[in-house]
């Protein structure tokens, strides 16, 4: 457990020191919210949630790419793959929750009339999905630029796709959009439960994907035999 917590702590420290990148990432949810604010509150809140998802997944992508060369040597230092990816995920969730707080307060300060419990749940879903999503892209694509472009594509598709269509459920942040509908439009409870279930399943699948990629990349190779010191 100490290993996981140490990796999480170092992930948080690293991210908080990337102040310039963090500020630019935070600008996106804020812009998303403000740009639709006069038109329709629902769109504004959904865009805000998508922006938070984008910010956290981009931070996750950067953290994963930066750790690519460090992780093999940490593996040799006694870490097992699950210490590394769980620690990193824990750190990213922590940072995600911290940066969500001002965006949770933003509609409140703005005097928006909505279900704030729902907003909190949608925000949690956004952060929960975003961390393993960014990590998975970072694990599969070795360069930040490629990963960022892929993230941008996903966020754009998420924004433009018809939410009622069956394809929308395949997008990672559908859960927060569904819960946001319940939050803003006072729809029936089904929206909330569907959203929470989707968020849970997608987070679990993405985390499993991260675990699979990390376990393969950091596996103990067959040609290497370890003997105790004789």
């Amino acid at each position: 457990m100490n290993r996981i917590v140490t990796v999480a702590e170092m992930t948080v420290r690293e991210l908080l020191r990337r102040r310039g990148v963090l500020l630019l990432l935070l600008l996106m949810p804020l812009t998303f919210y403000l740009i639709r604010r006069d038109a329709y509150l629902g769109q504004s809140v959904r865009s805000l949630l998508l922006g938070v998802g984008w910010a956290v997944s981009t931070a996750a992508l950067f953290a994963t790419t930066a750790a690519r060369e460090l992780e093999p040597r940490l593996r040799l230092s006694g870490y097992r793959p699950h210490h590394l990816y769980l620690g990193r995920m824990l750190g990213l969730w922590t940072v995600g929750l911290v940066i969500s707080v001002p965006f949770f307060l933003l509609p409140m300060i703005d005097g928006a009339d909505l279900r704030y419990g729902g907003l909190a749940a949608a925000m949690l879903c956004s952060v929960a999905v975003a961390a393993p999503f960014g990590m998975l892209i970072g694990a599969l694509l070795p360069r930040e630029l490629e990963g960022t472009l892929l993230l941008l594509t996903v966020v754009t598709v998420q924004m433009l796709i018809n939410p009622a269509g069956s394809g929308a459920k395949l997008t990672p942040f559908w859960s927060s959009r569904e819960i946001a509908t319940w939050t803003v439009d006072n729809t029936d409870q089904g929206y909330l439960s569907r959203g929470l279930l989707h968020g849970f399943v997608v987070t679990a699948l993405l985390a499993l994907g991260v675990a699979a990629v990390a376990s393969v990349r950091l596996r103990r190779r067959r040609h290497l035999r370890h003997l105790p010191v004789g």
């Binding site: 170092m10 420290r13 690293e14 020191r17 990337r18 930066a66 750790a67 060369e69 460090l70 093999p72 040597r73 040799l76 040609h223 290497l224 035999r225 370890h226 003997l227 105790p228 010191v229 004789g230």
Partner: peptide
């Protein structure tokens, strides 16, 4: 095949550190 007795340490040519730590 490679057989190693005991603990292994490795220092890469470059990289292997975390920029922001």
């Amino acid at each position: 095949e490679v057989t190693v007795s005991g603990r292994l340490g490795y220092c890469p040519q470059s990289g292997g550190t975390a920029d922001f730590l």
